[in-house]
Design a protein around this nucleic acid. Structure first.
Length: 285
DNA sequence: CTAGGATCCTGTCAGC
DNA sequence: TGCTGACAGGATCCTA
């Protein structure tokens, strides 16, 4: 669920609160959600690899966090709360709650809650030097900003028979896109999600790459699609879906380009939103 | 090697 | 009201 912009938002927010704070206690409420042995130490840095967040502690240990579909990180300080991840009422709910899986406690009284309804996400403790050798991290392709259009096009051509949407969701092809930004980037590029990669032209690939950067840039600028704010009773959602999403979850509503009703289809096993007029299977010009 | 589908898990919502 | 199946902002594993 949380895609690259959301994780980047979490990274920026958390950095303000827990750098130089000491992690002193870990409460594991769900065994499946924590891999390895709990660790303690002072937070030295926070990094992000695609959708994975890394918290580096003193003594060369790190925590790797992946939110997968429904993970949330909610930091509760003594005076403020900062939350990002899967959008839900949990952002403002009493904590811990039914979906809280792991609780990290810091020496200044701050508490970081890891909530995850579906238990697909996890926190993993590992030596810092092993982070880059982690099988998930190792497989990640560069992010759209760090990849040239030719490189992107060549990567797509390695999957000629796969549909374009499935391919750009593959983190080993390009890293960071998830279901929302894949739909948005394809819409912005006027590319139908079911087209085979083999039919995509180099020019279209370049436009798609630029679109992916643009939709995620805009989301990061607005604090992620979910939410990143100091808690107020109302702000349970971020701005992106409401302000910027052109097609995602807008089925039945008019396309901002042409007014045609947006439809929802199924591609690569995922709900997919398109404008049937702007995104033709036959490609165009 | 690629491609497609099932699977992990809990909760919600539409349709009987 | 109560049940049932579909589906969900992700990634892996299994099969062909």
């Amino acid at each position: 669920m949380p895609e690259l912009p959301e994780v980047e938002t979490i990274k920026r927010g958390l950095s303000k609160f827990i750098i130089n704070k000491k992690l002193t206690q870990t409460d594991i409420l769900c065994e499946k959600s924590f891999i390895g042995t709990p660790v303690m130490g002072v937070v030295k840095s926070i990094r992000r690899y695609g959708k994975a967040l890394i918290i580096d502690l003193s003594d060369d240990v790190s925590l790797m966090i992946h939110l997968r579909m429904t993970g949330q990180l909610i930091y509760d300080g003594t005076t403020k709360r900062y939350a990002a991840g899967h959008p839900s009422e949990n952002f403002v709910a009493t904590l811990p709650n039914k979906q809280t899986r792991v609780i990290l406690k810091f020496d200044d009284g701050g508490v970081l809650y890891f909530n995850d309804q579906r238990k697909f996400g996890f926190i993993k403790a590992l030596p810092t030097q092993e982070v880059e050798n982690d099988t998930f991290i190792k497989k990640l392709a560069p992010e759209p900003w760090n990849m040239g259009p030719n490189d992107f096009y060549e990567r797509l051509m390695r999957h000629k028979n796969s549909c374009i949407k499935a391919t750009i969701l593959d983190q080993s092809v390009v890293c960071g896109l998830g279901n929302i930004y894949a739909d948005e980037a394809l819409f912005m590029s006027h590319i139908h999600p079911e087209r085979k990669c083999g039919e995509i032209t180099a020019k279209e690939a370049k436009i798609l790459l630029e679109s992916a950067r643009a939709v995620m840039d805009r989301s990061i600028d607005s604090g992620g699609s979910t939410m990143a704010t100091y808690v107020k009773a109302d702000g349970t959602r971020g701005d992106y879906l409401e302000k910027f999403a052109q097609v995602f979850r807008r089925e039945g509503k008019p396309c901002p380009n042409c007014g045609t009703k947006i439809i929802k289809i199924r591609v690569a096993g995922r709900g997919t939103h398109i404008c049937p007029c702007c995104q033709k299977k036959e490609g165009s010009k």
